[in-house]
């Protein structure tokens, strides 16, 4: 495998020194199987120890290394350098989020939303372990399994202009995860979750741009989840209109 040189242009923003962000260019030798994250690691180890970014697993599981690569939200561990051969690769912090330093963005807003949708199985009454597990068929699993692949990398938020315009929007990943529990046959928390996803800033903000589903590195389709959530919301609303009491 031969070695080529990649030119990488990275956003630098150091709040203690810089009033404004700027781009810094680095040259990185690379092999065919190297990804953008390897290049960042090379820079940090060999050229500039102060370059700041997040990462951990390097295998698309931990969801911490997202960045905008040539304008598109991607995991840096899943973007090969050779795909940009001959071009300067621009690496910027994920769009829409406030930047703490260089490529590191503030995740607080997403973390709050994640907690808000209560991403765990809610039971009206827990049964003791001796009574066995909550069983589920393969078919029941299939109803939500794709949405449980979410790794909270927030790329879908970076891709969502609606979130960019209005950060109150619950957004793709959180809504998809809420839907994941709504569809889980073991979960009994619909009464709790519906109000969260069906309030104005819940699913309704979404206008089906669909880019969330395009950028998801795990093949999750948040757009689908949001749309199904809306359909649930609309049917619930109509039901409650027809049957004001027992409807929901």
């Amino acid at each position: 495998m031969s070695q080529d040189i990649a030119t990488i242009r990275v956003t630098r923003y150091r709040p203690e020194k810089d009033a404004k962000p700027f781009f810094q260019e680095y040259k990185v030798p690379y092999r065919h199987d190297m990804v953008v994250l390897d290049a960042l690691n090379y820079i940090k180890a060999e050229i500039d120890g102060s370059l700041t970014y997040r990462w951990s697993c390097r295998m698309g599981v931990c969801g911490s290394c997202g960045a905008n690569i040539d304008g598109e939200p991607k995991l840096t561990c899943a973007s090969f350098l050779h795909e940009f051969k001959g071009r300067t690769i621009t690496v910027e912090p994920m769009t829409h989020f406030p930047v703490i330093k260089d490529l590191v963005v503030d995740m607080q807003d997403f973390m709050e939303k994640l907690v808000k949708i209560k991403p765990w199985i809610i039971r009206e009454k827990e049964t003791p372990p001796e009574q066995g597990e909550y069983k589920q068929s393969a078919k029941e699993l299939e109803r939500y399994s794709q949405f449980s692949s979410c790794i909270n990398c927030m790329l879908c938020y970076a891709a969502c202009p609606i979130y960019g315009l209005n950060e109150k929007f619950l957004g793709p990943a959180a809504t998809a995860l809420a839907y994941r529990y709504i569809e889980d046959s073991r979960d009994q928390g619909k009464e709790v979750r519906f109000p969260i996803v069906h309030e104005m800033e819940g699913a309704w903000e979404c206008t089906l741009v669909g880019e969330c589903s395009v950028v998801c590195p795990k093949g999750v389709d948040p757009m689908l989840a949001i749309q199904k959530t809306k359909i649930l919301g609309a049917t619930n609303a109509i039901k409650s209109l027809l049957m004001p009491r027992g409807g929901r």
């Binding site: 069906h198 819940g202 309704w204 919301g233 609309a234 049917t235 109509i238």
Partner: peptide, 14 residues
């Protein structure tokens, strides 16, 4: 936590 279900909006969306 207070969540106001957008019931009217849900119907309008329907």
């Amino acid at each position: 936590e207070t969540h106001k279900v957008a019931r009217l909006h849900a119907m309008l969306w329907g």
